[in-house]
Each structure stands twice: as structure tokens, then as C-alpha cells.
């Protein structure tokens, strides 16, 4: 039989070792939690289409450029400058198409479709039909990226 003081010191040593181990386990668990947090965040981003999200600001800039150039072209009398601006707008639409954003075909007289059209205003004209297109819309496959801005006809305007 071991002397009593040895038993106590053994117990103390074991306890110290266990405490240390538990402490280490705690640290590792905390570390794992951090990793899970990170992986979770990454997973969320991937789920939401990281690449598509990265393209969003680029596309927004191109939409704006397309809108502005189209608007300015429309202000000019037919001629070289107008043709040039229209060509630039076409180029921008093509760059957008290369990012996967295709133009939504909208024409005057189309029936208003809230899934494709964002009403920008109303004007006298055939009710519930597109009277004019103020900004083009774009889609990636079935997904509408930006609705076309349209003016919708109303029978009477007071």
C-alpha cells in the first residue's frame, strides 16, 4: 500500500493533467466553432451563387451606361452622332449578354406583364399595354435580372 501523501499527490497530478486536457479540448472546440462559422458563411455565399453576386455591381454599372447612352441618343436628331451613341448602347448590351444577361424583348403594344415590366409611369394609350419603353430589361435564362422600365397605357388621363 502506498503512503497516503503519495496517493494525494498522485490524485493532484492526475487532476492537473485532466484540467489541462479539458482546457485544451475547450480550445479545440472553440476553434472548431470558428471553422464551422467560416465554412457556413462560405457555404451560404456559394448557395447564393458567388459568381453571379460578384457580377451584380458590374452589371448595374453597365445597365446605367446602357440607359444613359440610349437616352442621350434619343435626344439627338438622326445623324452620325446619334448613330454612334446607338452603336455604343448596342455594344454595352452585347457585353451584358456575355455576362449571361440577355435583353428582354419588349415592344410598344405588348400586354403589361408585372413579371417582366416595371411600370415607370402611365400615359394616355391602350389600357394595360406598353406605351413606351424607358429602360431595357435583362434576363439570365428564366431568371429576370432587371425588369424593363415601361410606361403603361391608361384610357383617360385627368
Amino acid at each position: 500500500m502506498l503512503p497516503e501523501h503519495d496517493l494525494t499527490s498522485d490524485l493532484a497530478a492526475t487532476l492537473a493533467r485532466l484540467t489541462e486536457e479539458v482546457g485544451r479540448e475547450h480550445e479545440r472546440a472553440a476553434h472548431r466553432e470558428q471553422i464551422i462559422d467560416r465554412l457556413h458563411a462560405e457555404n451560404q455565399e456559394l448557395r447564393h451563387g458567388l459568381l453571379q453576386e460578384a457580377l451584380t455591381p458590374v452589371r448595374n454599372g453597365l445597365y446605367r451606361l446602357h440607359d444613359t447612352v440610349t437616352r442621350e441618343a434619343a435626344r439627338l436628331e438622326p445623324g452620325h452622332s446619334r448613330a454612334l451613341l446607338e452603336a455604343i448602347a448596342e455594344e454595352v448590351a452585347e457585353v451584358l449578354a456575355r455576362t449571361g444577361a440577355d435583353r428582354i424583348e419588349v415592344a410598344e403594344g405588348d400586354v403589361y406583364d408585372p413579371a417582366l415590366h416595371r411600370p415607370a409611369g402611365t400615359a394616355e394609350g391602350p389600357p394595360n399595354r406598353v406605351v413606351s419603353v424607358v429602360s431595357e430589361g435583362f434576363r439570365a435564362g428564366e431568371r429576370v435580372l432587371r425588369k424593363a422600365g415601361v410606361v403603361i397605357g391608361k384610357e383617360e388621363i385627368y
Binding site: Y112, P114, A115, R118, P119, A120, G121, T122, I152
Partner: peptide
Amino acid sequence: QTAKDSAVL
């Protein structure tokens, strides 16, 4: 969003 857009009409 569509409801918000429809406020114009």
C-alpha cells in the same frame, strides 16, 4: 417588389 412597383399604376 412587384407590389412596390405597381404603386405607379
